[in-house]
Design a protein around this nucleic acid. Structure first.
Lengths: 122, 122
DNA sequence: ATAGTTACTTTCCTAAAGGTAACGAATAGT
DNA sequence: ACTATTCGTTACCTTTAGGAAAGTAACTAT
């Protein structure tokens, strides 16, 4: 397993980390961005794909992400109006690495937790 | 700039991502882990290093991280008692990549935001 | 006229997160 | 006895996040 080099704790670094945490905080934003990283989606599709989210919360999160230039919102002139959401280029190049790192962490954590509870039963 | 391959949306993947988000949620956990990734630290050092955190919140976050096996707590028998916190091996191999990805994202975002507001002023 | 679809918004409420300030317990120094 | 240090806890309060349920608006089909 590879270790990762750490950047020096400069002021800029700490600010950037704070920004990232604030922009992506909460239960839903990462999942929404992950779904959009596979291709653009409409509101209702996201409502299904992001399991458990309510329309109110989805709407609010999407507005938030749009304001921060992480996604775009496009109104299509279709029979019943549809709206497409897409991840922006700049988010698409920096968010997937975060998701993959979280995934690694999550999978590894599950293993460790299971090993730990095995030991506790002895 | 390199694009990152995405894993297929299997059930396990979605669960792992959910775990990761839940374990690392909030304003402080990532910063605490980042500081500990440079080496073990005592309570009071963390109180200074994690700028803005209060003793109450730090205490709670540390308990949380310990319960989830991401850090260890060691009481040293020194003159006034001291307590050392250290990141666990398994967290130390999976958390820094997350932090670096967040850093990349944060730095890149700052650039884009500044470029954007430049344009708006024209 | 009625019903369905899509994309929300509104209201109301609860729970979790977070902040402030003061206090406590153990130990040691003077 | 008094003060200082370290590592917290307790009580109280405000803010933010999030969930449930219903409603709205625009349009289409029947």
């Amino acid at each position: 397993m590879m270790e990762c080099k750490q950047k020096k704790p400069s002021k800029e670094t700490i600010l950037a980390l704070g920004d990232a945490i604030e922009l992506l905080r909460g239960k839903w934003k990462i999942s929404i961005l992950r779904n959009l990283s596979f291709g653009e989606m409409r509101f209702k599709d996201l409502l299904v794909a992001v399991a458990g989210i309510s329309p109110k919360v989805l709407s609010k999160e999407l507005q938030d992400l749009e304001q921060n230039l992480l996604i775009t919102r496009t109104v299509n002139n279709t029979k019943p109006i549809t709206v497409s959401y897409a991840i922006t280029d700049h988010a698409d190049s920096t968010v997937p690495p975060i998701i993959n790192a979280l995934l690694e962490f999550g999978l590894n954590h599950r293993k460790k937790i299971m090993a730990h509870s095995q030991v506790e039963q002895l």
